[in-house]
Design a protein around this nucleic acid. Structure first.
Length: 413
RNA sequence: CGGGGUGUGGCGCAGUUGAUAGCGCGCUCGGUUUGGGACCGAGAGGUCGAAGGUUUGAGUCCUUUCACCCCGACCA
């Protein structure tokens, strides 16, 4: 992609109505556009990063046998009445609307009821279990107060997976495999070291749910972690969990963190409430065990910005950067020729290159490369061309080295 | 939802005791520049969130309303 063709532009000023670092930088760099409080559009650069995060999650969900589908944002009132979650008293984040004939509809804030309702069409026998489905869906939640930029919006993208099982043992075993898969996800996203499986509230079938909490100053949660990092507990269940685990509270340290995933077991709750059963080998009706697994895709994107950004701008982990290389061109006709050639060469090798072909001062190009957080910057300039050299700079470290053409290709292929 | 704050060209801001708006960035054109957000010159662009009111006169005062931000509460 040529920077001259990008319809977004960078900005030196952060909008005054954003305080959150993630929103300020993402807007300045041209990754998101704010539509209203808690509602953001994703422009081309932002969409690329979002899709990369999704792809990592997708691969790991597929690896544990998840089958991708997509539900709808419009939901039936009756779907939710079955579990007592249609009323505004039970769920205070509902957006509701009506068909022209006055039929009430809900705008999806979650999908477990909808998924279960659909799955009962297909899961009839023990032979159909276990099964697991997931989606990347936009969730709509009428939050009283949006905050923290894209980390807590009224509209956001979530990956939610649901696994259905014939027995608790099977559910438990699968649940553990998903924890492993989640750990792989966060490692691939570059936050493996700072992400913990945490005891949290919200369990219905079990006493606790598990949250994946990433250490992050911009987070909303307080995490309590022990010395060797083997125990992590959300503040909201600190007393309960430490008692349960037999851990002395005093040995835990409080750290600010952001929730990047939440998984929990419903057990047979939904099955019972919704009247959904399977037939076992003896012909008897049995309840279905359900567990659900969420990753806030857009929130993860915000957390990555918050965690890695420096004074110059965003620093994307390579795995989610919109482009791998930012190609800076400095100079006249000769530089144009060489940079164009390099752009074609790299692109043809499948390397994602953002080529700054604008007639801008070098400083402006360097600043934009840094603001956008592209992992590697390659500079082609008149004086480098004369020496048959290329400059290669790593965004995260700032390290710059001079390479020959072949060394460069080798380095970034 | 309770409390606090802010709305003035695309963005960031200024606008004194009321007298029909100004700066920086960005944008357009011309020229000079070209390794860390260039410079000179010439331009375009706002009725001051909205509605109502007071006044000879309102961006400045009053009322209502909308939006946005922060703290708290909330977060299956």
């Amino acid at each position: 992609m040529r920077v001259s063709k990008l319809f977004t532009r960078t900005s030196k000023n952060a909008p005054a109505d954003e305080v959150a670092k993630n929103a300020q930088l993402l807007i300045r760099a041209g990754f998101v556009y704010k539509v209203m409080a808690g509602v953001y559009a994703y422009t081309p650069l932002g969409l690329r990063t979002l899709e990369k995060i999704k792809q990592i999650v997708r691969e790991e969900m597929n690896a544990v046998g998840g089958q991708e589908l997509i539900m709808t944002s419009l939901q039936n009132k009756t779907t939710w009445e079955g579990t007592g979650r249609w009323s505004d008293e039970a769920v205070d984040v509902w957006f509701k609307t009506k068909l022209q004939d006055e039929t009430e509809l809900g705008l999806a804030w979650s999908h477990e009821e909808a998924i279960m309702e659909m799955m009962q069409q297909y899961v009839k026998s023990y032979k159909d279990l276990p099964t697991s489905v997931y989606q990347f869906q936009t969730k709509l939640r009428n939050e009283l107060r949006a905050k923290s930029g894209i980390m807590r919006g009224r509209e956001f993208v979530m990956k939610d997976m649901y696994s259905l099982h014939a027995t608790q043992e099977d559910m438990d075993q699968y649940y553990e495999s998903v924890i492993t898969a989640y750990n792989k996800i966060y490692t691939r996203l570059g936050i493996g070291d700072s992400t913990f499986v945490t005891f949290a509230s919200g369990g219905s079938f079990t006493k606790f749910s598990h949250e994946f909490q990433t250490i992050c100053d911009a987070g909303e949660d307080i995490l309590y972690v022990n010395e060797d990092r083997s125990v992590a507990v959300n503040e909201e269940v600190l007393d309960d969990a430490t008692t349960e685990l037999g851990v002395d509270k005093a040995t835990l340290t409080a750290i600010k963190s952001a929730e990047v995933g939440n998984i929990f077991k419903f057990g047979t709750e939904k099955s019972d409430k919704m009247g959904i059963y399977y037939i076992d080998a003896t012909g008897a009706k049995q309840p279905i065990y359900l567990a659900s697994y969420g990753v806030g895709i857009t929130r993860v994107m915000g957390v990555l910005v918050e965690k890695f950004a420096d004074e110059k701008g965003i620093v994307w982990p390579e795995s989610v950067a919109p482009y791998k290389v930012y190609l800076v061109r400095i100079g006249g006709d000769d530089a144009v020729k060489h940079a164009d050639e390099l752009y074609v060469e790299l692109t043809s090798k499948g390397i994602e290159v953002l080529y700054d072909d604008r007639d801008e001062r070098p400083g402006a190009k360097f600043a934009d490369a840094e603001l956008m957080g592209i992992p590697y910057r390659v500079t082609v300039s008149d004086r480098l061309i004369e020496a048959n050299q290329y400059e290669y700079t790593v965004r995260s470290s700032g390290e710059t080295i001079i390479l020959t053409h072949d060394e460069l290709i080798d380095k970034i292929s």
